[in-house]
Design a protein around this nucleic acid. Structure first.
Length: 493
RNA sequence: GCUCGUAUAGUGUAGUGGCCCAUCAUGAAGGACUCUCAUUCCUUCGACCCGGGUUCAAAUCCCGGUACGAGCACCA
């Protein structure tokens, strides 16, 4: 009774993997390096690498770079994907596999398939074959002898055929209920003279290339992958691959799927489209804060821990979901707040002269809840202070951590340094201790900025600070600030 | 068209026949604390797609419907 109650308690984290206790667990994440990783890729990285940690297994990063024309790989992406993987998962993958390095291996298996009589070289056009697939009929090539298939295969390798003239198919069953599974294509020809592979060691070396379903299936077996967790758009892929595994007499990995995710603010996004836009210079590179790439999120000050807990919270349901960025931001706030030093930024600053009995300096805590982060000390020698344009309509203010003032024209008369009434508290700057700066933020897919003064500081690029009364921001390479959670209301701009 | 899959509060999510007039988070509203519109804490709001069936008992199993999504590429 008591035990059953425990079973039904809310499950924390991901569900256990099926059949994972008595054998080493091998997982993989296999992106196409046709661009840097984006928000959606993070799911595969987070889920798979989290299971690696739980089962002390092996995590493989595999580059599925077998298409040189439709979604051609991007040379720089190999390196950036490895970096992004390490950033997000906290360590290097246990193994890195590049499909384009393993073409010969795939040829060996293609050859076995033809020798074994469960594959054939099909010379039908795509359109002609479609008729057979829909009509559940065998195409003329299906019944060729093994010998004929081997001869044709060798011709394919020699470059006798043009792309589209020949393809290697896996023999399944043309009467299968699911049309997607009927004699599916395993390898095809690519014109790598016109579309060379971007990796110099590969270039135009091969004309015969495996398709995803074949390459991935063979490679999963060769790498000893035990569990595949991937999007449900690949469900039919699994079914195709299982048919191939049966031919080879292999055991297919345990497979789990997740549904499609959209972000309210972004809608859908594809790497190919982003690549076009970046190359057309619609964006300032792949880390442009408007893009949903991991680089951009990092640039926006989203911590990798926040991204991890975000994806773990969504879990691996097969539901198609749409989440607001606010959810990600709330995770990020939890991660970032306790270590973000407080900093003052005054937007549209208006200068006032302090009058009255002013001290020569004032000290403020770096973090209100963590005294160990120390104090920041501002000189008040010039007696010039800056207040935010939006605040000065209020005549009686309290300068945060300092003193009451009454505003009159360009003069701020000192009042009590003790807090005596409920007058509004505003952030402010001593002009001795500030410099001009810019606060950038994204809104409606545009980058906006507000001019202002920032408290002088020595934080290096990449530091996440909290601008008091504004929000979290990242110190940028050019010394401006970028708002992390993009929620500046109209009235503040 | 064929095939496959999913359906729990605004958004996500837990729940695999009794513990469920349903979990947790987020969101919204209110409040406490606070020399930040931050953080933290408290309160409140709000859901099992519809219709049948099986069963003593259904969010949970079965059937049908509906909605949404995916695959049927010589893309990944």
């Amino acid at each position: 009774m008591l035990q059953k109650r425990e079973v039904k308690a809310r499950r924390e984290g991901l569900p256990d993997l099926v059949d994972a206790e008595d054998r080493p667990v091998v997982l993989r994440f296999a992106p196409n390096p046709n661009g840097p990783l984006s928000f959606g890729h993070a799911r595969g990285l987070v889920i798979n690498s989290t299971y690696r940690e739980r089962y002390n297994g092996t995590f493989i990063l595999r580059f599925d770079d077998t298409d040189t024309k439709v979604k051609p790989p991007m040379l720089e992406a190999y390196k950036s994907i490895e970096e992004e993987t390490e950033w997000l998962t906290g360590r290097k993958p246990d193994r890195v596999v590049i499909a384009s390095d393993r073409i010969e291996e795939y040829y060996v298996h293609a050859n076995q398939m033809l020798e074994g009589g469960f594959g054939y070289v099909c010379r039908c056009s795509a359109e002609d074959f479609k008729v057979h697939r829909v009509g559940k009929t065998a195409c003329p090539c299906r019944d060729q002898s093994k010998e004929d298939n081997i001869v044709l295969w060798k011709s394919m390798l020699k470059g006798v055929f043009q792309p589209g003239d020949a393809v290697v198919r896996v023999k399944t069953d043309m009467t299968l209920k699911n049309p997607a599974l009927r004699d599916w294509p395993a390898l095809r020809l690519q014109d790598t003279k016109a579309h060379p592979h971007p990796r110099p060691t590969i270039g135009s070396n091969y004309v015969v290339w495996p398709l995803l379903d074949f390459q991935s299936a063979v490679e999963d077996h060769l790498q000893g992958v035990t569990h595949i967790i991937r999007g449900k758009d690949l469900m039919d892929s699994t079914r195709k691959q299982k048919l191939l595994y049966e031919h080879f007499g292999w055991t297919y990995p345990e497979t789990t799927y997740w549904g499609r995710v959209k972000v309210h603010e972004w809608g859908g996004f594809s790497t190919s489209q982003m690549r076009k836009d970046v190359e057309a210079e619609l964006y300032e590179g792949w880390s442009d804060p408007r893009l949903p790439t991991l680089q951009a999120l990092k640039m926006r000050g989203i911590d990798s821990k926040a991204l991890r807990s975000f994806w773990l919270e969504l879990g691996i349901t097969q539901k198609d979901i749409s989440v607001p960025l606010a959810t990600l931001y709330s995770h990020n706030t939890k991660v970032v707040d306790s270590t973000a030093p407080r900093l003052t930024f005054v937007r549209n600053p208006i200068s006032f002269s302090l009058e009255g009995d002013t001290p020569s300096e004032v000290s403020l805590p770096v973090h209100p809840n963590d005294a160990s982060m120390g104090m920041r000390t501002w000189s008040l020698r010039s007696k010039k202070i800056l207040l935010e344009g939006a605040d000065i309509e209020l005549m009686d203010l309290r300068l945060k951590e300092f003193a009451d003032v009454a505003l009159n024209d360009t003069v701020a008369s000192m009042g009590s340094t003790e807090r005596k009434d409920k007058r509004p508290i505003v952030h402010w700057l001593s002009s001795d201790q500030s410099r001009e700066s810019k606060l950038c933020y994204t809104k409606d897919n545009e980058i906006h900025h507000v001019n202002g003064h920032v408290e002088t500081h020595a934080y290096t690029a990449g530091t996440i600070v909290q601008l008091e009364r504004i929000g979290y921001a990242r110190v940028m390479e050019d010394d401006t600030l970028l708002l992390c959670h993009e929620e500046l209301g109209e009235e503040n701009v």
